[in-house]
């Protein structure tokens, strides 16, 4: 991506509250898109760059949400709650990673799924701690530097700042030696070992980067909703974020952002007509997997380069190859 195009895109996004027709409703949706985009960007480090499909990512996202909610509800200062939420989620990510990285491919997928279900189970059943299905409700957003984030536009700019920082970090990471090495472990783990790389540790660090993004996104998701409920930890949430990554295009930076906008946009439109969002979500999921496994961004880029061209050599999509 050209720096100019990125700058133009971010500028247009920053100006969004000025021109969105729907007022604060649309601005709120834009904030949500950015939160989910950060979540998806982080997951993409695993799915796209490491070739490891995690189905337990909501466990990390929701955990950050719960830690922050629980602490704020208990009267902890916002900034301490924020640091604790991210810190504890990083620790949980490390635990997830140590267990899940005992396998790759399907084993990895299953272990992450199981871990996600455990966290969900705790949140839903350990009522005395988590409020069970009622979740934890808090009615204050933080006010950094004395600026209240209670209305849509200030919250949008706080989220935008977070989005830009996280996008920058993920961008730096995937273009760094460590990020390129992570891609190497996806394609040729054996050769990476022979070249002197510690394949396990590289994947572990990739998992932490992914967990960090999930934590930050989870924290902002909590700020947005002022609420934490078991739904944020559910398998459906994990599925939703995986869908964002593969719908937009794994192993691209723009893909997860487009995917987040697409899924949330559709959710918004569909929900206003019918109550059955999961049906749509599942249908889109199945359609993307069957008909556009490479995702929208690479698909459209290919069409733009050579209109009508058939897919060339298979690309490493979300699941084009299983790491061996």
């Amino acid at each position: 991506m050209k720096p100019l195009a990125i700058a133009a895109g971010l500028a247009a996004l920053a100006a969004l509250p000025l021109w969105m027709p729907g007022g604060s409703y649309d601005v709120n949706i834009a904030s949500q898109v950015m939160i989910w985009a950060v979540f998806a960007l982080g997951l993409n480090v695993l799915v796209g760059y490491a070739g490891l499909v995690s189905l337990g990512q909501a466990g990390l996202f929701g955990f950050a949400c719960y830690v922050a909610a629980w602490l704020v509800a208990a009267g902890t200062a916002q900034w301490i709650a924020a640091i604790a939420a991210i810190g504890f989620t990083l620790v949980l990510s490390a635990v997830f990673a140590v267990l899940a990285l005992r396998g790759t491919g399907i084993s990895f997928l299953m272990i992450t799924l199981t871990l996600g279900e455990i966290v969900w189970g705790i949140a839903q059943r350990w009522v005395s701690l988590t409020g069970g299905d009622n979740g934890i409700s808090v009615s204050t957003r933080p006010a950094p530097f004395g600026i209240s984030l209670d209305t849509a536009t200030p919250f949008f700019y706080a989220t935008f700042a977070m989005f830009v920082v996280m996008l920058g970090l993920v961008w730096r990471f995937v273009h760094s030696p460590l990020g390129v090495a992570l891609r190497g472990t996806r394609d040729q783990p054996r050769r990476m070992g022979a070249l002197g790389y510690n394949v396990w540790l590289i994947r572990f660090l990739g998992f932490l980067v992914s967990g960090f993004a999930a934590a930050v996104a989870g924290l902002f998701f909590f700020y947005y909703n002022e609420f934490a409920s078991p739904y944020v930890l559910s398998l459906t949430t994990s599925a939703e974020v995986v869908l964002m990554v593969i719908a937009g295009g794994a192993a691209t930076l723009l893909g997860p952002i487009v995917g987040a906008a697409l899924v949330l946009g559709m959710q918004d439109v569909v929900s206003s007509y019918v109550a059955h969002w999961n049906l749509m979500l599942g249908a889109i999921f199945v359609a993307i997997i069957l008909f556009m496994p490479e995702g929208l961004v690479p698909g459209l880029a290919r069409l733009a380069r050579r209109p009508g061209a058939a897919p060339a050599a298979p690309r490493p999509g979300a699941f084009g190859r299983t790491p061996s």
Binding site: H175, S176, M192, L195
Partner: peptide
């Protein structure tokens, strides 16, 4: 990638590759 494999800066997460 092969050159980096034995260099300490292979761990750098922020420098441009």
């Amino acid at each position: 990638l092969a050159l980096l494999g034995i260099l300490p800066r292979r761990w750098n997460p922020l420098r441009r590759f």
